[in-house]
Simulated assay, not measured.
Amino acid sequence: MKIEIENPDPFLEQLKKVYIKMDAAYNNAAAHYGFECRGCPDNCCLTRFFHHTVLEYAYVKKGFFLLKPEIQEDVKKSASDVCRKTSELQKENKEIRLMCPLNFKGLCQIYEYRPMICRLHGIAHELHWSGKITYGPGCGAFTDHTKGMNYYKFDRTPFYIEIADLENELKKRAGIASKIKMTIAEMIETF
């Protein structure tokens, strides 16, 4: 599903501001625990995350097209390989653990343009929704590192709300009614 948005830049600038606050909150929580993500065998870049906003699709696309043409080609080839292998693994009912096509030698090629889940993954957190609080434990490396430590309140809710509001405004302006559910590899295949 290819998504075309005329002049998304004002929305992407607002998203960038949300990401700055998000990164600061994440860094504060990580500093509280003395936790640094330095890569591990359970690398989150091997996780099949689905992204649900047109806004983040446009942000990833912007980051992609800032890459040198030869890097874009390598990323597109990798994305195509990931999509093909994912399809094969699904048919065989096997676990899907494939490296994100934007990760080359352990580095994200569009790090400043990475989506929300790539920014927030790993740290224990909470969400306040419909009068309930849901807690997430963080990744395995985080859990191992923080055994016996007190929980530091890391509430993702304000960021989700801000992004949802921006998403709704963007979709309304662009005349987009449909929802998306795409991996990074699937997004890149549409660029």
Rank of each mutant, 00 (worst) to 15 (best):
R48P: 02
Q109V: 00
H128R: 14
I123C: 07
M116R: 11
C37L: 07
N93S: 09
K105T: 00
A31S: 12
E126Q: 11
C40F: 10
L98H: 11
K91G: 10
L120P: 01
E56S: 10
E56W: 09
V60H: 08
F50D: 00
K85R: 15
S80A: 15
Y113G: 02
L89D: 03
Y113I: 01
V18T: 12
C108A: 06
V54G: 03
A31I: 04
K17D: 06
W129A: 05
Y59I: 05
K17A: 13
L120Q: 10
F50A: 04
F49N: 00
D74L: 15
K68V: 10
F35S: 00
E112M: 10
G34N: 04
Y135W: 14
Y59P: 00
H32V: 02
T47S: 10
F104A: 12
Q109A: 09
T86D: 03
V60Y: 02
S80Q: 15
K62S: 05
F64N: 03
Q14R: 15
N103C: 13
Q14M: 13
M99A: 13
H32F: 15
E56I: 04
C100W: 06
V60R: 09
K77Q: 12
K132E: 12
A79Q: 07
P69K: 10
T134V: 14
A79K: 09
F50W: 03
D23E: 14
I96P: 09
L66I: 08
P115S: 06
K94I: 02
D42T: 05
A30L: 05
P69E: 08
H125R: 10
F104Y: 13
G106P: 02
C83I: 04
T134C: 12
L89T: 01
G122H: 05
L98P: 01
E88M: 05
L67I: 01
K105R: 14
C40L: 06
K21W: 13
F65Y: 13
A25R: 06
D23R: 10
I123D: 04
H52G: 00
E73I: 07
R38T: 07
M99V: 12
Y57D: 01
E92G: 04
E95T: 07
L55P: 00
H51Q: 05
K62R: 15
K132D: 07
K76N: 05
K91V: 05
L67R: 02
H125C: 11
E70F: 13
D81T: 04
L102D: 05
E95H: 11
R114Y: 08
K61Y: 13
F35D: 00
I133H: 15
F64I: 01
C40R: 09
C45H: 06
Q109H: 11
L66Q: 14
R97N: 08
Q72Y: 03
L46N: 06
A79T: 04
N93D: 08
A58N: 03
I123S: 06
S130H: 15
A30C: 08
